[in-house]
């Protein structure tokens, strides 16, 4: 198991090629609209405000072809929202999403459909992500049939191939999702996504709901599929050890903003941002098991009312006055290594 995880060598990517997916200044706000009564109350002078959550705040992200990018952050930091924007399920409030150099919003008709089909998503909850009233064959084969990737006459063979590729026995294709275990359900989800022949997969906490032994199987499956089908992944996870094994590059998010991004090796050896360092310190490891964990202090602040300046300053051990006033920009601290921290300016 672990042998095949370690099998893929770190890859290098040039900065000049067009990224497969690129986000420029993408934000996503969720607003609770005021109803009639609240609007009336505000007119009369009551203190009612529209509640706006900045789930994703001006994020730039590039994923190159063949790359595996790990997106890490605590729950509630907006990483799932970002993943849904990348997968095209959720529209962004601001900013632009590029697919192979073309802005997704400008695509129409066939091109728009193709760009959407080529970005697929594997979901966190293997129970909620499969329609309980459909048979496995229909779950996997519906979209390819609708989009003309297969025909009625070839439907069975096509579905069998997709199931086999995800490690499922085609004999079970007449069954319903509730007759499968969690790991098998996740394989059905993978077969469903791959059945439309995508090039890019967003894995949203795809193994978080599974047992550790099953996790390893599914991760191996991801890596095998990556080699066989030349896939590109955006791997969203809160689990640093999973990301360390899988990713070429890691992006760390905190409360809607990217705070650091670097090749995986660099993040784990020379993390720059205080948040990344405190995250790494809280990972249990065999080599330092005698040490007490330093936990990130405090709770993640409410995105309804984020801290001023650097979002991390209330929990940061190194915070100084400037952190409260000014949000740090993401700056290059080494080639391919960018971090958003005022301490880099001071040095």
């Amino acid at each position: 198991m672990s042998a095949s995880l370690a099998e893929h060598a770190p890859r290098t990517f040039s900065d000049t090629e067009t990224p497969m997916v690129e986000l420029r200044g993408v934000s996503r706000r969720f607003a609770k609209k005021l109803d009639l009564a609240a609007k009336l109350a505000r007119k009369l002078g009551a203190d009612v405000k529209e509640e706006v959550v900045h789930a994703v705040d001006k994020v730039d992200l590039r994923v190159r072809k063949g790359e595996v990018v790990g997106l890490v952050g605590e729950s509630g930091c907006g990483k799932s929202t970002l993943g849904r924007i990348v997968a095209g399920i959720l529209p962004q409030s601001d900013g632009e999403v590029f697919w192979k150099g073309q802005e997704v919003g400008t695509l129409t008709g066939e091109a728009a459909r193709q760009s959407k089909l080529q970005r697929q998503m594997i979901f966190q909850d293997p129970y909620a992500s499969l329609n309980p009233r459909m048979r496995v064959a229909d779950i996997v084969g519906e979209a390819p049939l609708v989009h003309g990737l297969t025909r009625r006459s070839e439907f069975d063979t096509y579905v069998d191939d997709q199931m086999r590729r995800a490690g499922l026995d085609p004999a079970f294709k007449r069954r319903y999702p509730h007759q499968f275990s969690g790991g098998q359900r996740q394989r059905i989800g993978i077969a469903r996504a791959l059945a439309v022949q995508p090039e890019f997969i967003v894995c949203d906490e795809a193994v978080a709901a599974l047992d550790v032994s099953i996790q390893a199987q599914i991760l191996n499956l991801f890596m095998r599929l990556r080699r066989e089908l030349d896939l590109t992944y955006l791997f969203i996870s809160h689990d640093l050890s999973v990301v360390e094994h899988l990713s070429d590059r890691v992006v760390i998010m905190y409360l809607g903003r990217v705070v650091e991004e670097a090749p995986t090796e660099t993040i784990f050896r020379r993390a720059n941002h205080p948040y990344t360092r405190s995250l790494l310190d809280s990972v249990p490891r065999i080599e330092n098991r005698k040490r007490a964990f330093t936990v990130v202090k405090g709770e993640i602040p409410s995105p309804l009312n984020p801290p001023t300046g650097c979002h991390f300053h209330p929990r940061c051990p190194l915070a100084f006055d400037r952190c409260k006033a000014e949000a740090p920009a993401l700056r290059e601290v080494a080639p391919g290594h960018r971090s958003a921290c005022h301490l880099n300016d001071a040095a």
Partner: peptide
């Protein structure tokens, strides 16, 4: 629920999502 998001991600037509996915549930 996520199966509806999955259907959207698979670019299924709206009437299909409504009557094949949402209605039976």
């Amino acid at each position: 629920r996520e199966y509806i998001e999955a259907a959207q991600c698979l670019a299924l037509p709206t009437h299909r999502i409504l009557f094949r996915h949402l209605l039976p549930n």
